[in-house]
C-alpha cells in the first residue's frame, strides 16, 4: 500500500512537470501564432498532428532519442499537452474584443505591453481551460510510461495484466481515476471563477 502511495505521488509529479513545461511552451507558441499570421496555420497544424500519433508510437520514437525512463515520458506528455494549450491560447488571444485592442493601442501600449497587460489576462480563462484538459488527459496517458521504463501508476497496472491479477489492475487504476476527477473538479472551480471575473 505504501508502494501504491509512492507511485501515485510519482505519477502526479511526472504529469505536473510535463504540464508546467507544456504550459510555458504552449502559451509561447500560442502567442507566436497570434502575432505571425502566416505561422499560425503551421504551428496549429503541427500540434494537431502530434495529437494524432498514437501514444505508444510517440513514446517509442522518443525513446530512440531520450532512452528509457522518466525523461522520455515527460517529453511525450509535453508534446501531447501542447495542442489544447496552444489552441486555447490562440483562440483566446484572437477572441479578445477588437475594441479593447484598439483602446490599448490607442493609449500607447507597445505590442508586449498589450500582450501582458491586456490580451493574455483576458485570454487566461480559456488558456486555463486548455491546461485543465491537458492535465486530465496527461494523467491517463502517463500510465503507458511503464512500457518505456518510467515510474508512476503504469507499473502496478502492467504487472496486474501480466500476472492476470485483476485486483492489482484495479488498485493501479483507481488512483489514476481519482486524481483525474479531483484535478478536473478543482480546476473547473477555478475556471468558473476566472470566467466570472473576466466578464
Amino acid at each position: 500500500m505504501a508502494d501504491l502511495f509512492f507511485l501515485t505521488i510519482e505519477h502526479m509529479v511526472l504529469v505536473l512537470i510535463a504540464i508546467v513545461i507544456s504550459t510555458a511552451f504552449g502559451i509561447l507558441l500560442g502567442i507566436i501564432s497570434y502575432w505571425t499570421p502566416y505561422l499560425d496555420k503551421i504551428i496549429l497544424w503541427t500540434v494537431d498532428s502530434l495529437q494524432t500519433i498514437p501514444s505508444l508510437a510517440l513514446l517509442s520514437i522518443l525513446m530512440i532519442f531520450f532512452g528509457l525512463g522518466n525523461v522520455t515520458l515527460i517529453v511525450g506528455l509535453i508534446l501531447y499537452s501542447l495542442l489544447p494549450i496552444v489552441r486555447n491560447t490562440y483562440i483566446g488571444l484572437t477572441g479578445v474584443s477588437p475594441h479593447l485592442k484598439d483602446a490599448a493601442k490607442g493609449m500607447g501600449m507597445s505590442k508586449l505591453q498589450r500582450m501582458f497587460k491586456v490580451e493574455l489576462p483576458l485570454s487566461f480563462p480559456l488558456i486555463f481551460s486548455g491546461i485543465k484538459i491537458a492535465t486530465v488527459t496527461a494523467l491517463s496517458i502517463a500510465v503507458i510510461g511503464v512500457l518505456i521504463g518510467s515510474g508512476g501508476l503504469g507499473y502496478p497496472i502492467y504487472r496486474g495484466i501480466q500476472t492476470m491479477n485483476f485486483s492489482a489492475i484495479i488498485k493501479g487504476t483507481i488512483p489514476v481515476v481519482i486524481m483525474a476527477v479531483i484535478f478536473d473538479f478543482f480546476m473547473s472551480k477555478i475556471e468558473q471563477k476566472l470566467v466570472a471575473r473576466g466578464k
Partner: peptide, 20 residues
C-alpha cells in the same frame, strides 16, 4: 507612435475599459 499615443487621450464608443 507608441510615445505619440501616450500624449494623446483616446476615448472610443465601445468604452473599452479593461475588464481585468
Amino acid at each position: 507612435p507608441v510615445k505619440l499615443r501616450r500624449t494623446i487621450g483616446y476615448v472610443i464608443q465601445q468604452i473599452g475599459l479593461f475588464p481585468n
